[in-house]
């Protein structure tokens, strides 16, 4: 068990170390997310009266685009120089590699989501109360885990099978629709004080299911 957790930690630490040095993922993804928010600001601020509607729209559009871009970048790292093969020939459980990659991708997507939330406040006047904002951060965190769990599997599948990078969003977006739907509805419900029940169950259950499915299938996804 300790070697399993140790392997997860090593993969996570390695990704964070590379990111700290290159800032390749967070910088490019953050710029991308900010562009989405700014585009919303330029396009809708004059015409749309509801800052809350505008803010959560920009937040989740940025989330899905930035997430797709972020997961591509983190897996591209393993594709270069056959680095993934280097992980696969190590005497460790392959699900540890998967969980390590999911964790690092989650960190990147979540960090950019927090930045995007701040940007919506600055540029779109989106200002939920502190408790609502904290709950939205929680929703973003769970969504980032679910998105990464799907994204790591799909992007490795895309890279290993030699499909074009453009195939990734085509395969990924339909699978993350339940997460986005739940995320958007939960954000709206948190602002209006409506019950969260069904959407919260969908978000957590779907995240749990895709994470377990990823653990179960990763062995086969990386096989040639």
């Amino acid at each position: 068990m300790s070697s399993f957790l140790g392997a997860i930690y090593r993969v996570l630490k390695k990704d964070l170390q590379i990111e700290r040095r290159t800032k390749q993922v967070t910088t490019t993804v953050a710029v991308f997310a900010l562009l989405v928010v700014l585009t919303f600001a330029f396009s809708f601020v004059q015409t749309l009266q509801s800052a809350a509607l505008l803010g959560r729209g920009a937040l989740w559009v940025a989330f899905v685009f930035a997430g797709t871009f972020g997961v591509t970048k983190t897996i591209e790292l393993e594709d270069r120089n056959g680095a993934l093969d280097g992980l696969l020939i190590a005497p460790i459980d392959r699900s540890a590699i998967y969980l390590g990659k999911v964790l690092s991708t989650t960190v990147f997507i979540f960090a950019v989501s927090l930045l995007t939330l701040g940007a919506t406040s600055v540029f779109l006047g989106y200002s939920p109360s502190m408790s609502t904002a904290a709950a939205i951060v929680g929703v973003l965190l769970v969504s980032a885990v679910g998105f990464s769990a799907i994204g790591v599997v799909v992007s490795i599948l895309t890279f290993r099978s030699g499909l074009d990078e453009l195939a990734l969003p085509v395969l990924l977006v339909p699978l993350v629709v339940p997460l986005l739907l739940a995320g958007v509805e939960l954000t709206a419900a948190l602002e209006s004080g409506a019950p969260l029940g069904g959407w919260l169950r969908l978000l957590t259950l779907y995240t749990g299911i895709v994470l377990l499915a990823g653990i179960a299938t990763f062995e086969y996804v990386v096989e040639e």
């Binding site: 390695k14 170390q17 590379i18 040095r21 290159t22 790292l77 270069r80 120089n81 056959g82 680095a83 093969d85 280097g86 020939i89």
Partner: peptide, 9 residues
Amino acid sequence: HETMVYDEL
């Protein structure tokens, strides 16, 4: 053929 290492480290 591939080095299996990370150019960033």
